[in-house]
């Protein structure tokens, strides 16, 4: 299998801030790759280097077989990009922006454009300054998805979308996967991308710390459970995979490794479940737990920079 994006040992500093600190990333052709990390981890910086907008200080970057810094314009005809912060020209309409970006990229499919406008429920006649954040994002998404390109680079594309539109977006990405397009999808929320992605890379402080399929990364996902029971719970503490257990009378809070979820639910329902909230922890929480354990166990806290 060939790779659409190969990054190795990428460094990038702004003054004394090391935004990227030896980043490695490998995105195979035809896969949907999740690029995950908390805010400020270096996701957008990496993407800007991939687009040739920034020049890396050190390391090798290859995009669609070319050098994104040297061959920027040629490579850009084969990809589409949706920035995290979409700003539009105040007096151009959404439709005009979609067409302009499409044409500058080398053309877009008018049928697909109309179809996407309908699916995203976007009015293309409104002026840029009158769109809300979510609608500006839709403009950029329609422009990108209506282009006939090999690679989509999407930087937090759903951050302004409502749940209904997130669902539309998911379907669109599913369609792209069917067409064997490569997609790099950045996000700081694991649950938003885990169902979409073939593989995931997790970035923290300018380095990719985990990469693999979701199954490979199962050990990272825990579900946080809040339950109110009919009787006080028993035996929970003895179960493997239960963390941060907090029992107050009939109320239980805990974090459960996904692999142990079934056993824990049985145990809970044995006491009679009155109410239950289960949610995936945020990446930040995951990092805190996962890596704090690591650093405490293996090495004394060393200043990262």
């Amino acid at each position: 299998m060939t790779s659409a994006i190969v990054v190795s040992g990428l460094h990038k500093s702004y003054g004394s801030t090391h935004a990227l600190d030896g980043l490695d990333l490998d995105v195979a052709t035809g896969e949907v790759h999740g690029f995950l990390g908390p805010n400020g981890a270096g996701k957008s910086t990496t993407i800007r280097v991939l687009l040739g907008l920034l020049k890396g200080d050190e390391g090798d970057v290859s995009l669609l077989g070319g050098d994104p810094w040297r061959d920027a314009a040629t490579l850009h005809r084969r990809l589409a990009y949706v920035p995290g912060d979409v700003n539009l020209w105040p007096n151009l309409t959404g439709g005009e922006v979609i067409d302009l970006l499409g044409r500058l990229r080398g053309g877009l499919d008018p049928k697909k454009r109309d179809d996407l406008l309908r699916r995203f429920d976007l009015d293309p006649t409104k002026k840029g300054r009158t769109y809300s954040k979510g609608n500006r994002q839709k403009v950029a998404l329609v422009a990108a998805l209506a282009s006939d390109v090999e690679l989509l680079i999407l930087d937090e594309p759903t951050s302004g979308l409502d749940p209904l539109m997130e669902e539309v977006f998911r379907q669109c990405i599913e369609d792209e996967r069917q067409r064997d397009r490569t997609v790099l999808l950045s996000s700081h929320i694991l649950s938003k991308v885990e169902a979409l992605c073939d593989r995931i890379s997790i970035i923290r402080k300018g380095k990719v710390v985990e990469t693999g399929t979701l199954a490979d990364l199962r050990h990272l996902t825990r579900t946080s459970i809040q339950a109110e029971l009919a009787a006080s719970p028993n035996g929970l503490a003895q179960l493997p995979g239960v963390h941060a257990l907090d029992v107050q009378g009939n109320r239980v809070r805990c974090e459960v490794d996904t692999a142990q979820l079934d056993a824990v639910m049985r145990q809970l329902s044995a006491s009679g479940i009155r109410s239950l909230v289960a949610q995936p922890p945020t990446l930040e929480e995951l990092f805190l737990r996962h890596y704090e354990d690591d650093t405490i166990a293996s090495e004394p806290e060393v200043a990262v920079r």
């Binding site: 020209w89 151009l92 309409t93 439709g95 979609i98 302009l100 044409r103």
Partner: peptide
């Protein structure tokens, strides 16, 4: 009140210079 504009870009709006002119 800003009025709605064209849903489709004019045929000439297809280069950076055209955009600069439009702006």
């Amino acid at each position: 009140r800003p009025r709605p504009g064209p849903a489709v870009a004019a045929a000439w709006l297809r280069s950076p210079l055209a955009l600069a002119w439009r702006l």
